[in-house]
């Protein structure tokens, strides 16, 4: 006996729907497997996973949160880019405009700022969690190294973004920071010059930091994250008790 077709059945049975979603409602194990395997965003996961790997008190969601904050930062960052002008003479004014006259501009900026701080903390704590659970041990050595590179990339992303508001806080924090880099033995002056593009922070510095911040470093981070996530699966999923 066939039951009567509801509107939902018609929609989910239509050729258009089936062309997009190739699995039925995920209430059977088969469809639950298909939904993971046939969705580009979900297929980063395996179909099945060890039970301990879903325990929040094991991972504290820290790696996931770091990635999530990266996504929030990308989205709010793109929105801010519509209004921000990386020019010595206009950067600060465009910041005032974002805060004062752009709809939800202040909210976008706040979300960007706070998740940037949050990402530094989350990445750092994620490293702690991975360390204290011994998850760097073979076969995951290389992924640990990738993780350290991601930590450094996160620091650099945050540091390059710090200059962009072009206020006193930004200007002098970057002055102190780049002086620290400039104190490197032997190559110090060169490092400082490469960072600033000039003898002191100015237009060349701003455009360097801007380009690094909005495209170069995000690409590096995305590249490293791709390797990082891929290796988790290739190394047998997240670690757990033997």
């Amino acid at each position: 006996m066939r039951r009567e077709q509801t509107l939902a059945d018609r929609i989910t049975g239509s050729a258009v729907w089936r062309s997009v979603v190739r699995h039925g409602y995920p209430d059977t194990q088969r469809n639950q497997a298909l939904i993971i395997a046939s969705n580009v965003f979900l297929h980063i996961h395996p179909v099945k996973i060890k039970r301990y790997a879903t325990k929040v008190t094991y991972t504290f969601c820290l790696g996931g949160l770091s990635f999530f904050m990266f996504l929030v930062l990308t989205m709010t960052g793109v929105l801010l880019m519509f209004y921000y002008i990386p020019s010595e003479s206009q950067a600060y004014e465009s910041m005032l405009a974002i805060e004062g006259s752009v709809s939800f501009g202040q909210l976008m900026r706040n979300m960007h700022r706070w998740s940037a701080q949050g990402m530094v903390i989350a990445v750092f704590l994620h490293m702690g969690r991975v360390f204290y659970t011994g998850s760097y041990k073979p076969p995951r050595e290389f992924n640990w190294v990738i993780g350290v590179l991601l930590l450094v990339t996160t620091f650099l992303l945050s540091f390059t973004g710090y200059l962009l508001p072009w206020d006193q806080l930004a200007y002098w924090a970057i002055t102190v920071g780049s002086n620290i880099g400039g104190a490197a033995p032997i190559v110090g002056p060169q490092v400082n010059r490469i960072l600033l593009g000039d003898l002191q922070i100015g237009q060349s510095t701003l455009i360097r930091f801007y380009t690094l911040h909005v495209i170069f470093l995000p690409l590096i981070a995305a590249f490293l994250m791709a390797v990082h996530f891929w290796r988790i699966r290739k190394d047998g999923g997240i670690s757990g008790p033997l």
């Binding site: 088969r30 639950q32 298909l34 939904i35 979900l42 099945k48 996973i49 039970r51 790997a53 879903t54």
Partner: peptide
């Protein structure tokens, strides 16, 4: 059709992890 043979200590990613 059993796409996965769930072991005792395993769960489906959908819904458990998702």
């Amino acid at each position: 059709a059993r796409p996965t043979d769930l072991a005792e200590d395993e769960v489906m990613v959908w819904p458990s992890l998702v």
